[in-house]
Amino acid sequence: MRRGGRAAAAALALLGALAACVAGSAPASHTANGADTRRSGFEDMSRALQALQRDETQNPGMLWVQEGEALWARRAGDGRSCAGCHGAEAARVANASARYPVFDVETRRPLTLAGRIDRCRQRHLGLPGQGPDGDEVLALSAWLAQRARGLPIEAADDARLEPWRARGESLWRRRMGQLDLACGLCHDERAGEKLGGAVIPQGHPAGYPTYRLEWQTLGSLQRRIRGCIVGVRAEPFAPDADESLALEVWLQRRAAGMRIEGVAVRP
């Protein structure tokens, strides 16, 4: 009995070691036993900040959600509006935050939700382009994100996106900048450990646009990625660069199935 128990314990220890090895090389999302170890940065925040995000009367991102709702109904010069095409309740695009980026047949490239909003604004409303961190694009993104809250992130089975995902993944693992760091070194291998005083998150895009207390404003996923890239002292990619799109596609795949948080709050 006793010996059997010891053998079992040894076997378990070996399994544990193997699991650790596998976990070390795979993304944070997968472990040897198939359990989903992905977690949102939400879970690493203080309870006060979690409460701030959950409470719609306190979450400062709701200021943008409100604005987005008003913009959705606002008529442009020729009387057209977002609501005019997509409906006042936007039922058909309620899951947009969970669905994008998608493959755009027109440009033969991935299209992010911010890119889609910006294009729609220019093409159908005759408004100037703003980029992902423009006031109105952010507000509309925020409103759509809030509408998609709780939906699982979808990773469309689209073969045309596959090369972009692969490129994004290789970028994720490529060392860059004067600090010679790859995204995955922190966000896969050292997620949960500390960088300075802060817990390193796994880096899932489930709560964008996000109100960062550090920014004192709402910001896009692109802005967040730019912050990291500047942090390792590399030159950031332009928001519409192939690299940015590829990274977003990869991040979406990596987080597939996780729930959209709506407009998140982060320290």
Binding site: T57, M62, W64, Q66, L71, E136
Partner: peptide, 11 residues
């Protein structure tokens, strides 16, 4: 914020 002043009030 580009447009009108926005507030969140909870009573």
């Amino acid at each position: 914020m580009a447009t009108a002043v926005r507030t969140l009030i909870h009573v």
